[in-house]
Design a binder for these strands. Structure first.
Lengths: 145, 145
DNA sequence: GCTTGACCTGTGTCTAAGACCTATGTTTTA
DNA sequence: TAAAACATAGGTCTTAGACACAGGTCAAGC
């Protein structure tokens, strides 16, 4: 049995119930709560957190936003905007545009790194595994220009 | 004037001298020192760290290894191997091979994310910036399947 | 009534590689 | 002698939680 209260037509969830409903861990729920992305109320008799249906919707929203590449801080800004009855959409569009651009740069950087590593590995094919001499550490890496 | 001691044919470097010589920050030098990648000795009169020429070579080595994609922990393992008069080369080759593979996977994941973001942005072109209703937060993100 | 298991609480540490800041001590230079 | 430039240790901050620990709560079965 869960902790839904039908008489009041208000459902509350405990941490694990909420986590399971959104297919995330309880650690994630607690983490989001600490960051104030979720806003449970306290059950004063046992000090437990009680999550509302709105929290469940928020939690699912967080999941979708995350797979689109939004960070938790960005998601928080979006939620805050929506709570002020502002449209968060311009913010949402703006963030994703910037992230797409940023990712392109990181992509290129990662590509450069990958090429560099592959080139090094090829060059090392003709070099032996010698024991370092003097202050040298590894002639393979030290041979890189 | 720096703190090189020519009479003993041993040069010592202060943090900033070493950092400048390897084109890194003093914070980086201190960080590597804390991680025991560099091993200065203490000047007992003023409690300063004194770095040797071997430290400078290590510091330059760290720089080269880093642009090849090695992490500091991996670099530490390599240095430890070389200090035991073992050849660190098999380790060096092994790490880079694994990282090349890992990068390929991360590359693919990043590509999937990028495509997902671009697709979302295209789909949002035909949607308006409405104000959230009820428990909804942002219909743009919530429209993602 | 008691135990057991499953849940809850807060707190802390760990991940990578430093950047930045504070407060304080030392050395060099004008 | 005072200021500038160096040094020290220590702390916090960045991502998104995972994992561990110690102890409180609650339902079920015996």
């Amino acid at each position: 049995m869960n902790s839904e209260v039908y008489s009041k037509k208000i459902s509350f969830y405990q941490v694990k119930e909420l986590a399971d409903a959104a297919h995330v861990t309880t650690d994630a729920v607690r983490f989001y709560t600490k960051k104030r992305l979720l806003k449970p109320v306290r059950n004063k008799t046992n000090n437990y957190q009680m999550y509302s249906h709105a929290d469940l919707i928020r939690l699912k929203f967080i999941g979708k936003a995350k797979i689109l590449g939004y960070t938790l801080n960005e998601i928080k800004q979006i939620i805050i905007a929506s709570e002020k009855s502002e449209s968060p959409c311009p913010l949402v569009r703006d963030i994703i545009k910037k992230r797409i651009e940023k990712n392109k740069n990181q992509f290129n950087e990662a590509m450069v790194l990958q090429k560099r590593m592959e080139k090094a590995l090829r060059q090392w094919e003709n070099m032996d595994d010698s024991i370092p001499v003097g202050d040298s550490i590894c002639h393979l890496i030290e041979s890189i220009t």
